[in-house]
Design a protein around this nucleic acid. Structure first.
Lengths: 162, 162
DNA sequence: TATAGTAGGTTACTATATAACATTTTGTGA
DNA sequence: TCACAAAATGTTATATAGTAACCTACTATA
């Protein structure tokens, strides 16, 4: 786990706050954060590293002490994605908890190839500019994905370069 | 196939010019555009729609009149990717010919969810801005992926909206 | 309490990609 | 021109990612 995650925040609190937030949202919207959905969300929040569907599957199977099948996980993921509680990282087929599920936003992900941590940047100025450039092409954008691979500040600091 | 692709250019010429360009590049760099690599590149250039690895596999098998195995295709794809002759669309696990293989560039892809065409925009001003914002986070970027899903100009013109 | 809608279970399958090792081809120097 | 190393391809098996289809169970409310 990257250094700043140990250093800068209490990750247990981070998880529980994410779960509380999800509960609030579901309550507000009249949708249900069922046991499975909650478990999947919690598993995803275990790290700031992204989880693959099959990581989650294994973890869930362990927790339930019986084999869980893929559709169970994918349904939960679909629910969480649809409701903006998690994001999908297209370039790595993996899922990560959303920082700010209560407010709609555009995200840019910084993916560290050394420690695998992922940082989410919100509503960067360039989004508007990009949307405008795309609009000028006559293209009607529905979704913009920006993912940056590289080395995070902590890893750079520790002399990593890959 | 989207309207403008039929209307705006001779696609056969488009393919042959891509192949010629690839040959030049390989010659220059002292790398080899073997039969298989050439075939794969040609298959990818068949359309401005992206091809999946298994589309290519099937097509190659047909051309060779015998079953070709996945590694054959993936190796060719790796070669073409490494040498900037094609791009990978992360959000759809598919491959598309590069517009400008001779010059290094950053690309942004506009993916039409109606006609499946993909347009490649180069070195948009926002790239520099994005790179700078990312740098300010202390993040050392190695690769930036920008993919936009939506509806292309032609499809919008024809009243499509999905 | 019938019943429609939602969620989850189960089986089987499709799609995407890679590991590991064998064989063939190609380029190079003796 | 032969030997040999490197590069490319062939082959088999397997890993990883995601979905279809159908069934069962729960749950909310008319």
């Amino acid at each position: 786990m990257p250094h700043h995650i140990l250093k800068d925040h209490d990750h247990n609190q981070c998880i529980s706050s994410a779960l509380r937030s999800a509960e609030d949202i579901c309550l507000q919207r009249g949708i249900k954060l069922t046991q499975i959905r909650r478990q999947v969300l919690e598993i995803i929040w275990q790290g700031h590293q992204p989880s693959t569907a099959y990581d989650i599957l294994d973890c869930l199977s362990q927790q339930q002490n019986k084999k869980v099948a893929p559709p169970t996980v994918y349904r939960a993921l679909d629910f969480l994605l649809d409701n903006g509680l998690i994001h999908r990282l297209e370039s790595m087929n993996a899922y990560i908890g959303c920082d700010a599920p209560t407010t709609p936003h555009q995200s840019c992900f910084l993916i560290c190839s050394h420690c695998r941590s992922v940082a989410e940047l919100h509503d960067m100025p360039i989004y508007a500019a990009l949307a405008e450039e795309v609009r000028q092409e006559g293209f009607k954008a529905k979704g913009i994905m920006i993912e940056v691979k590289g080395v995070c500040a902590d890893c750079v600091e520790q002399g990593q370069s890959a």
